[in-house]
Design a binder for these strands. Structure first.
Lengths: 350, 350
DNA sequence: CTCTATTGTGCACCCGTGTGCACAACATAA
DNA sequence: TTATGTTGTGCACACGGGTGCACAATAGAG
């Protein structure tokens, strides 16, 4: 049988509320009594029942983390950042996967609300303003992560996707590529706009046939890239929305008999742990996944403590990571040595 | 303000217990009243407060998942399997990281108990019988995952680590290797015993200098492998406790000027998603991570429903995956074509 | 018509903790 | 002595929902 404050109270011949107050360090309890209560609590191995206290105080010390897929390199690292930070503040974290399906997201949302979570960190599957507005109106502190609508009056922590997409595209352009494909994610738009913007600077229109949409998986990348390499005039470079997609693209490219980077240059996004060990080592855009989660959790803690009058909007700057999977066009060199755009990248970061 | 059953009751002029019963489909409520109550509940957007019902029924519909590190490829996929299965049954999952530190594990354990979880799936940092026994005595249904003490009267789901270690070592031996290093994990012993056993069959004693211990990270693998390649007589093959460690080893091997597999053969364990895309594609042992989590969750559900009289002990069979990172010694071939031990593996699986 | 099932609903109280308020015990000042 | 704080403790009740039991309403049997 679990120990309750009433049992402690009984043994000491006091009322259970006295025990409750003593354990919560209420100033109204005498120092002497407080000590007696605390030491007995320890002796009996008392563990407060957070379900009960959650009911009466409406604070559960639980938060929810809603992401597309915890098994990805990206979100699993984000989750770790969230959990570490939350734990230090005494919170537990519920993990919820949506696969970017709106119904699943709703399901999890309701489940979290029913459980009385104190806050939610969410990477929404649905970016419609009305929908997000509704989430914000639910009365639960929210922090958006990785995805958001900047115009909304809400806290968020994201990577500057636009900058990342822009830097990479600019880099590929500087290598002489002009037919650059971008394998898009269904929800992700920022990187795409960066890509678009860089092309525009070179006077290149976006060719829809070069921007297939895929989910964020290896299989999805393979499928999308397959279409690209089978084109009459395949792109000379393929930029993928993330590293796993690049992995799939890598397979498709090779199965079609093309070499990387000799025939087709390949780039990813995320700088997953494995990226530098691929053959060739993958050129990609680094984003700080753990820090993303850490920062989101910090902000959520502040929101929950009411220490935040205005929403906090944080954009972490991504960094171009040049390895060997992209080559200079019309040149035997595999990759160019520190092109102008890297300098640009550095200035953006600073 | 959140809708409660008392509010619904008031609007209908009935007692709140009638509402409670109607929503829980008690047979004592008339069909007519049940319909009226349910439709009003839907209309008002009633969401049951699981904190409150958890207090009175002692069932929270929450479970805990305690692992070393959710950000690893292995545990993140396990977690996904757990979450998917639990969600279908109406449960939410708390995620807890221990980094294999016993104090952190205890901390999380207490946190979960305080929150009244209905069950716990745990990959314990500490495999001491007395400790595990104590966990089992806490009165909470438990399923061990990935690690356990088979002698204990407890449910578990693991990969047959021994078989995996044995198969891989046998394979390396069949390629002609005799100086085979094994980069061990701190906690993991099964794979090591398999390695030991295979060596014994060839009359080779275990050389402690060839079996450095490391954590399960890339950095750890790099550090451990560095020692190995710097030896006067380096091993001809390095078998790593998992794929990330192999990644680190790969780096160390190359930084020392050795080629893979020409100078040193390299093998991993897990068959992480990225393994086939490495250069050379990594020979490894496949284990089903998602299924591991799925099965553990299924068993926990049965335990929580009291449908399990005896503990369920499940061992999933690993499969040797031969790629190009191991070569035949004294032979120009990179890898041997289907050696006897693969046949052996197949029989073990069946 | 009374007696007895059957069915549906309400009452009281529980789950474990928290909190406003009353009040007892004691000390100090008038 | 009485009036007036302090300080510490207990009481009642709340949080939202669940459950054993009593009992009212209705129906059917004798």
């Amino acid at each position: 049988m679990k120990v309750t404050i009433r049992q402690i109270a009984k043994q000491l011949g006091v009322h259970h509320t006295t025990v409750s107050r003593a354990l919560r360090n209420s100033p109204r309890i005498s120092e002497n009594m407080r000590q007696r209560i605390k030491s007995l609590a320890i002796k009996l191995g008392y563990r407060p029942n957070l379900v009960a206290s959650g009911l009466s105080t409406r604070k559960t010390f639980n938060v929810g983390l809603i992401v597309a897929d915890i098994s990805t390199t990206f979100f699993s690292q984000v989750a770790r950042g969230v959990e570490d930070t939350m734990r230090r503040a005494g919170y537990n974290v519920f993990i919820c996967n949506t696969d970017d399906k709106i119904e699943d997201e709703k399901f999890h949302w309701d489940a979290l609300i029913s459980r009385g979570v104190d806050g939610i960190i969410i990477s929404p599957a649905n970016l419609k303003p009305r929908y997000l507005q509704k989430l914000l109106g639910a009365g639960v502190p929210i922090v958006f992560i990785d995805r958001c609508l900047p115009s909304l009056r809400a806290s968020y922590v994201i990577t500057d996707h636009f900058s990342g997409g822009y830097q990479m595209t600019k880099y590929l352009l500087s290598l002489g590529h002009r037919r650059i494909a971008y394998v898009r994610g269904e929800v992700e738009m920022g990187r795409f706009y960066g890509y678009e913007h860089a092309l525009k600077e070179y006077g290149i229109p976006v060719d829809n046939s070069l921007t297939p949409v895929c989910d964020f998986t290896i299989e999805g990348g393979k499928k999308a890239a397959k279409k690209l390499v089978r084109m009459e005039h395949p792109p000379t470079a393929i930029f993928c929305v993330n590293d796993p997609v690049a992995l799939g693209a890598m397979k498709a490219i090779r199965e079609h008999g093309f070499r990387i980077p000799e025939d087709i240059s390949l780039a990813g996004f995320d700088n997953a742990d494995f990226a530098e060990f691929l053959q060739p080592p993958l050129t990609t855009v680094h984003q700080s996944k753990y820090e993303l989660g850490e920062e989101a959790a910090r902000i959520l803690l502040q929101e929950m403590n009411g220490k935040l009058r205005e929403p906090r909007k944080v954009e972490l700057k991504p960094v171009l990571v040049i390895r060997d999977s992209c080559r200079h066009i019309g040149d035997s060199r595999v990759n160019s040595a520190l092109p102008e755009c890297l300098l640009l990248a550095t200035t953006i970061i600073a």
